[in-house]
């Protein structure tokens, strides 16, 4: 049944891709973003240096907007996109990585944007999740949507919510295996939620404040998984952007594949690799 569901999902994804490719222009937009960082974990095994990475690109993109004569900033924007992306943190010492959760995703989605309503995207996704050593890994597929609005409260703030509901097919998950006492790893449904708010500040030292919260909850988790505390994962981060490209951040909680609940302190700066 699980394999059947996987096949149906990929047929849907491939069908969507082929339908779009008939008239779509090949997209050239790709980006890679790397941030060196120092991570200090209160409950972990000490500090380590690492790199936060993210990349994204479009395989296909098709716009639906109508022609207009004048430049109109209030124009409605609509499109369908097939894209790929990845993100995570890789530490010099993988055993000291408190954000040990790497993601690689392929998705097909619709996008709609209007000046008063904000911007929303949604559609099918498939995702590969693993830890840095690739010892724990799982495949996830399902439906997702993201909504965001600039200047929601003031002139230059931003708020966003990202929600996904999908089937998780665990390939290797040492903690889950241990909790289930060696039983086979069955697929399960999971809800993900991510919330972001950014607010500008007019102070001499701090230019803006950010709060990010990620939440994962398993639907109808077995008792053994609930008792082991593996049915829910959450991570909250508050960050102050300082002058001179510096930032300080504090995180509490854990993501899937993280070893334990933790409190993480980060200080970093932005740097470009050419």
């Amino acid at each position: 049944m699980n394999n059947y569901t996987c096949i149906v999902f990929f047929v849907l994804l491939v069908t969507t891709t082929k339908a779009l490719s008939a008239e779509a222009e090949p997209a050239t937009n790709r980006s890679l973003y790397l941030n060196p960082t120092v991570i200090d974990s209160r409950n972990g095994t000490g500090s380590t240096v690492g790199v936060e990475y993210k990349f994204k690109g479009y395989l296909l993109s098709r716009d639906f907007e109508s022609q207009d004569n004048e430049l109109d900033p209030n124009a409605i924007i609509g499109s369908t996109v097939i894209g790929y992306s990845g993100s995570g943190t890789v530490a010099a010492s993988k055993d000291r990585n408190p954000k040990n959760f790497l993601e690689f995703m392929l998705d097909a989605k619709l996008k709609y944007s209007a000046p008063a309503a904000g911007t929303i995207t949604g559609g099918l996704f498939s995702k590969y999740e693993t830890n840095q050593s690739f010892s724990d890994k799982q495949f996830v597929y399902g439906l997702g949507a993201t909504y965001g609005k600039y200047a929601a409260f003031g002139s230059n703030d931003f708020i966003a919510v990202d929600v996904a509901y999908g089937r998780v097919n665990p390939k290797d998950d040492s903690e889950r295996k241990a909790a289930l006492g060696g039983a086979t790893l069955d697929s399960y449904y999971r809800l993900n939620l991510e919330f972001l708010i950014m607010y500008p500040l007019q102070t001499d030292n701090v230019s803006s404040v950010e709060f990010n919260f990620r939440y994962f909850v398993e639907n109808n988790a077995p008792a053994a998984i609930r008792i082991a505390g593996l049915d829910k994962h959450q991570l909250g981060t508050i960050l102050l952007n300082l002058k001179n490209d510096l930032y300080v951040a504090y995180s509490a909680g854990k993501l899937p594949f993280d070893r334990k609940n933790d409190q993480i302190f980060q200080i970093g700066y932005s740097y470009k690799f050419n």
Binding site: S85, S87, M105, G118, T119, Y147, G148, E194, L196
Partner: peptide, 16 residues
């Protein structure tokens, strides 16, 4: 944003 690497959120933000 510095607290998320979520490409969906960054895509929505950039359009806004």
């Amino acid at each position: 944003p510095q607290t998320t690497t979520n490409p969906q959120i960054i895509e929505v933000l950039s359009l806004e």
